[in-house]
Design a protein around this nucleic acid. Structure first.
Lengths: 351, 351
DNA sequence: CCACATATGCTCGATAAGAGCATATTTAGC
DNA sequence: GCTAAATATGCTCTTATCGAGCATATGTGG
C-alpha cells in the first residue's frame, strides 16, 4: 500500500491540508447506514421502536429505523438520523447518542467480495413511550423478545440453563480447532463469564458480548442466514430470541449495553420518564432496564440525596396505599457536579 | 425523502433482506477514513504517535496515522486500521478499540457542498512506548502539547486562568444571539463545568467537551482554519495547544477521554506497561494519564487487593532507596470477576 | 371502622476509601 | 563503616457509603 502519508520523508504537495486524503486509493462502493435503537419504557417494559418487514415475505424480520447518510442533505450524522427516523416513524427524537460503527464483512446476507459493503453507524435514542398513535409506522416491542436471556426481573431466566448453557458447553468442547496458544480466552471461559455459568456473577452490561458469543457459536438465527460454518446444524434448535434484519440485533444489543451502563452514572433515566412521576415509578423504570429489584428505601435516599429530583407539591392518589409524592427531574443538577446517575448495585445473584 | 423502509405499508420486493439499502438514494462521494490515536507512556509522559507533515510547508500540522477503509482489502474496520498503522509507522498494534465516528460538515478545511465528504472512524490503541527505532515513521509526542490545559500533574495549569478563562468569559458574554429559550446549557455554565471555573470541580474525563468548547468559541486554531465565524478575531491570540490536521485533535481528545475513563474500571493500564514493573512505576503511569497524585499506600492496597498483579519474586534495585518488588499483570483476573480497573478518586482539587 | 397496601423516615452494621504513622531496606556522602 | 536521605511496604484510624431492616404515616376497599 502507499506510504504517502509519511510526510516527513515525502513532502505533501501544496494544498497540504486536504491532499493526503485525495491522493489515496479509496473505494467508493461503501454505503453508510444510520441505524437508530430507540428505547422507551412502557408499562414497566423496556421497548424498542422497530419497523416490521412484510410479514408474509420470506425471512421477514424486524428492523431498526434506518437510512443512508447523505452528506449533502445532512449536516451531521445525528441530524441525518433524526430526519430518517422522523420520515419513517413520525417520531421526533430527543436524547440521542452515537453507539458504534459496524462494518464486518460477512455480517450481512449474501456476503462476498463482489457485494457492495455497508457500514452501519448505530445510535441510541431514549424517549418517552408515546402510544402507537403519533407513529406513522413502526411499533414498540419489548427488547427482551430479542434477548430473552437478558430478562432477570423474575430471577434467572430459564432459557439460560435450558437452551443456552448446554449448547455453549458443547460448542466449547470442540474447541476452535486453531491452536490456542494465543492469549485468546478459551470458549468455555467466555461462556462462563458472559452468561454467569458455574457460579460466576451475572454482569448485566455484557449484553453485546453475550449476543456476539451466541452468534459466533451459531446459536443466533442471523448466523445461519450469514452462512457461518457452525450454523449448519442449527435448524433443529429452538429460537434464541427473535432475529432482526442485517446486523440490527447487534446494534440493539449495543444499545442495551450502553443504556444499562449509562443509567448508573448519568441522569438519563429521566429521558424515559414523563415530566412528573413518583419515586416508585422511577424505580420500576430503572428495574425494567437493569433487571434486579432494588431496595426501595435506599433508592429513595439515593435519588433524593443526589439532588436529582424535586417534589412538585402534588401527590398521586389511587396507588393502592398512601398517596405518593410527585417529583420532577431537577435539570439544574446538570449544572452542578458531573451529574451522577442512579447508582445501584446488583443484589446477590439469585441464580 | 423516501419512505420505502416502512415495510408494513409498502412491501419490500422479493429479495427482502438486502433490498431496502439498494433502493435508496445513496451518495457515493463519502470516503471513510480510519484514524488511530496510539497512546503510550514514556518516561512518565503520556504520548501519542503522530506523523508530521513537511515542516516547511504552509499549515503543516501533525496528524494521526490514518488511511481509507477499503472493504475489499480489509475484513473489518479494525483490521484495516492495523494494516494502515503498520504501513505508515511500522508499528504492530496490540490493544485497540473503536472510539467514535465523526462526520460533521465544516470540520475540515474548505468545506462546502461541492467538496467530497469524509467520515472519520477514530480508534484508540494502547501500547508500550517502544523507542523511535522500530518506527519507520512518526514520532511520539506528549499529548499535553496538544492539550496543555489537561496537564494537572503539577497542579492546576496556568494556561486556564491566564488564557482560557478570560476568553471563554468574554465569549459567554456575547451569548449565542439565538434566543436561548431552549434547554441548552448557557455558555457560561458550559465553560464553568468544563474547565472547573468558579470553584466547580475539575472532571478529568471531560477532555472532549473542553476541546469542543474551545473550538466552538473559536479558540482552537482548527476553528480558524475551518472558517468558523467566531474565529475572525483569533489571529492575535496565543496558541492553545498545537493544532492537528483535519479533525485529528478532536479524535485525540476523544482518545484521552476514553483512556482516562476506562483505566478506572478495566485493567487497561497494563497495556502500557512492560511485562515486569514496580508498583510505583505503575502508579506513575496512572498519574501520567489521570493527572493528580495518588496516595501511594492506598494505591498499593487497591492494586494488590484486587488481585490485578502478582510478584515475580525479583526486585528492582538502584531505585534510590529500598529495592522495589517487581510485579506482573495477572491475566487470570480477566477470567474472574468482571475485571476491575485501577479505581482512584481525585484528591481535593488543588486549584 | 378495620384490615391492608403502599409511602416514607430513620437507624444500624458491614465495608470500602482516604489519610497518616511506623518500619524496613537500600543508596549516597562523609 | 556510619549516618542521613530516599524509597518501599505494612498497619491503623477515621470517615463516607451502602445494604438491610424497623417503624410510622396515610391512603383504599370492604
Amino acid at each position: 500500500m502507499n506510504m504517502e502519508l509519511s510526510g516527513r520523508r515525502k513532502p505533501t504537495p501544496d494544498k497540504s491540508q486536504r491532499a493526503p486524503e485525495e491522493e489515496r486509493d479509496y473505494d467508493p462502493s461503501v454505503g453508510i447506514g444510520l441505524n437508530a435503537a430507540i428505547v422507551a419504557v412502557s408499562d414497566n417494559e423496556p421497548v424498542a421502536l422497530v419497523v416490521r418487514a412484510e410479514p408474509d415475505s420470506i425471512g421477514a424480520t424486524d428492523m431498526l429505523p434506518y437510512g443512508p447518510f447523505n452528506p449533502r442533505a445532512h449536516r451531521t450524522l445525528e441530524s441525518g438520523l433524526r430526519s430518517w427516523v422522523q420520515d419513517q416513524t413520525g417520531l421526533e427524537l430527543g436524547y440521542a447518542e452515537q453507539l458504534y460503527t459496524f462494518a464486518d464483512r460477512g455480517r450481512q446476507p449474501e456476503p462476498g467480495d463482489t457485494a457492495p459493503h455497508f457500514i452501519s453507524i448505530g445510535y441510541l435514542a431514549l424517549t418517552q413511550a408515546i402510544g402507537h398513535h403519533g407513529l406513522t409506522d413502526g411499533l414498540w416491542r419489548s427488547w427482551y423478545q430479542y434477548f430473552p436471556w437478558e430478562d432477570w426481573r423474575r430471577g434467572r431466566p430459564e432459557i439460560i440453563a435450558r437452551d443456552i448453557e448446554p449448547r455453549l458447553k458443547a460448542w466449547a468442547e470442540k474447541s476452535s480447532g486453531v491452536a490456542t496458544s494465543q492469549p485468546t480466552i478459551a470458549r468455555a471461559d467466555r461462556a462462563r463469564i458472559c452468561f454467569g455459568l458455574d457460579g460466576t456473577a451475572w454482569d448485566e452490561e455484557k449484553v453485546l458480548e453475550r449476543f456476539e458469543l451466541l452468534y459466533e457459536a451459531g446459536l443466533a438465527e442471523e448466523a445461519l442466514r450469514d452462512g457461518r460454518p457452525t450454523a449448519r446444524e442449527w435448524t433443529d434448535r429452538p429460537k434464541l430470541g427473535l432475529p432482526m434484519q442485517a446486523d440490527h440485533r447487534r446494534i440493539l444489543a449495543t444499545a442495551i449495553s450502553r443504556t444499562r451502563a449509562k443509567i448508573k452514572y448519568r441522569p438519563v433515566v429521566f429521558e424515559l420518564m414523563p415530566d412528573e412521576f413518583t419515586l416508585y415509578e422511577l424505580q420500576k423504570t430503572v428495574e425494567a432496564i437493569l433487571g434486579p429489584h432494588l431496595h426501595k428505601q435506599n433508592f429513595r435516599r439515593l435519588v433524593e440525596g443526589a439532588g436529582l429530583v424535586e417534589p412538585t407539591g402534588d401527590v398521586k392518589t389511587r396507588t393502592g396505599g398512601r398517596p405518593a409524592k410527585l417529583f420532577r427531574f431537577r435539570r439544574e443538577v446538570l449544572l452542578e457536579r458531573p451529574a451522577p446517575g442512579v447508582r445501584v448495585s446488583a443484589p446477590p445473584s439469585r441464580s
